[in-house]
Design a protein around this nucleic acid. Structure first.
Lengths: 129, 129
DNA sequence: TCTTGAGCTTCCAGCAACTGGAAGCCCTAT
DNA sequence: ATAGGGCTTCCAGTTGCTGGAAGCTCAAGA
């Protein structure tokens, strides 16, 4: 199967699929004309990767997860560990963003947003801590 | 004032300050020996930038905010607009992360995390949607 | 005075994860 | 024969720095 159809089926842009081959996440065969020839297993892998990426896993995590997926002797504890670490990172990011949100929304609420130059947002940014 | 002291005072790495000069956010003078010579106003600007960055504003937003800060004829509505747009982006990111968190934490909870290969996390990643 | 070490300079490369574009081959249909 | 769409590679750019190498400057100590 050519890259265009794979792109549709796996839900990934062709560019991304080529990139994933570049970094060794998939290894499609090649036809005589030089076109990539994807097997069902390649498409399956790509869909797996796409889904893992929507969970926010890094490419390296994706590589690990894919390896585990293909390893019959894996222990679910290994998978769980990767997922938990990622979950912790997500939590931290949410906390960061929430703190940004809270500070900033206070400032936005305090700003008149009119034609006058006076602005608590700028005042806060400029303040000496 | 040399870059080292400015770095401490503004709370930004020297590398970052040089980078900010590169992209035109600050324009320190130069001493005869070629060293950057920062005025108080430069330090003030850098601290402003540092604080804006902790709020998660992009560099381009920071540039805009700095311009507004220095523009006596600004209207606070302009500042508020930038901040509100950023706030909306933050909200969106939080929503995304929360959705990731929710799905993933369910899967993590469902995973035994033992020595056996069976794993609902991998099962989910591999499923056909 | 010479040397040593810290601090400064520039420039180049690399991170993550793609994305866009150019130049050019391949295949099918008219 | 030619037009088009799909495929190929390679290079550059995105964001916001960060690390490192090579080399100049300055102040202090032997």
């Amino acid at each position: 199967m050519n890259i265009g159809e794979v792109s549709e089926r796996a839900g990934l842009p062709a560019k991304t699929i080529r990139y994933y081959e570049d970094i060794g996440l998939v290894r499609p065969l090649r036809s005589d004309n030089g076109y990539r020839a994807f097997r069902d297993s390649d498409i399956h892998k790509l869909a797996f990767l796409g889904r893992a990426r929507t969970f926010g896993f890094s490419i390296e995590d994706c590589r690990t997860l894919l390896d585990l997926y293909e390893d019959e002797t894996r222990e679910s504890a290994q998978v769980k560990a990767v997922a938990q670490e990622h979950l912790a990172a997500i939590d931290e990011k949410i906390a960061q963003l929430r703190s940004m949100h809270d500070t900033l929304s206070h400032l936005v609420d305090a700003c008149h947003g009119d034609h006058r130059p006076d602005c608590p947002i700028l005042k806060d940014l400029a303040k000496e801590p």
